[in-house]
Design a protein around this nucleic acid. Sequence first.
DNA 1: AAGGCTAAGTCTGCTTGACAGACTTAGCAA
DNA 2: TTGCTAAGTCTGTCAAGCAGACTTAGCCTT
Lengths: 158, 158
Amino acid sequence: MSRPWALDYDTATCNIAAALAVVGEKWTFLVLREAFNGVRRFDDMRRRTGAPRQVLSARLARLVAEGILRKAPYREEGQRSRSEYRLTDKGIDLFPVLASLLAWGDKYASGPGGPSVALTHRDCGAAVAVQLLCGNGHVLKSARDVTPVPGPGARRIA
Amino acid sequence: MSRPWALDYDTATCNIAAALAVVGEKWTFLVLREAFNGVRRFDDMRRRTGAPRQVLSARLARLVAEGILRKAPYREEGQRSRSEYRLTDKGIDLFPVLASLLAWGDKYASGPGGPSVALTHRDCGAAVAVQLLCGNGHVLKSARDVTPVPGPGARRIA
DNA sequence: AAGGCTAAGTCTGCTTGACAGACTTAGCAA
DNA sequence: TTGCTAAGTCTGTCAAGCAGACTTAGCCTT
């Protein structure tokens, strides 16, 4: 690797940045974690993430505005009707991000007892992992086997 | 889904939070993106991420302290010797996180021309994608096919 | 209909972190 | 010894995060 080709291209078109602009904030990830765990209600999320109410409120509103969560009414026995937050398909598609973070955390930052959450295949019960898979069906052992190349939207720097 | 089991367990043991505590900050992801693109030098990273010098400096130091990047000396013709930043294996293992973000960004937040970066398999050239794979070799179509269950490190709330 | 109950917020004052831009450092070369 | 450059640090300003108190809105009981 002499001079990386990336230096000749503009970063403005990078979709990692675009994704991060939407979900890149600290509490947003934790909110999504809870959502994937089936937690849907404001106060549960607040208690479990530790996010200040104001921040949680803002993040939820943003996620709804982006179409990652949607508000749905619910009604607890003897209570008024309130709103809870559910993942949309767009939100569900963020799962690999969370799953990758979890895998990395399990490997490098796990507490004493080991992982506190395991992912299983609903249909067969086996453990689920995030893998890099190429179009020819090869499972890649390491990210070192991946070569990033400029895509159609890449823009050369003048 | 009546009452999610997650509500009965402590969030303190969650390794997603542990991972985010290390790499969860906004600029950190962008720094890693550059690192995976082969960008290694302070000023290149600064220019390409837009991070303020002070913040970049702090993030790089943190990543080195965490063993995700390591400093390596380099020497440009006619210049003094300086340090650049390279991914360690621990850092390389974060690739799926970035790749997932990229895939999501490509799908939902792509600019006009389409993706600006494509991931290819070094050995066969085919496109690489992040997939959910179960222990029995099934490729999962959606995160809805994943069932999270309490792991060995899970701690019930009193 | 008055008042209590609760989840889901908003409001207030304080503190921390981000930021831009100027400045500093350290080794190499002329 | 002076200049050059990448890689930082320093300073003042401003936005964001934060804890804790307060508010809101329906449903229920009395």
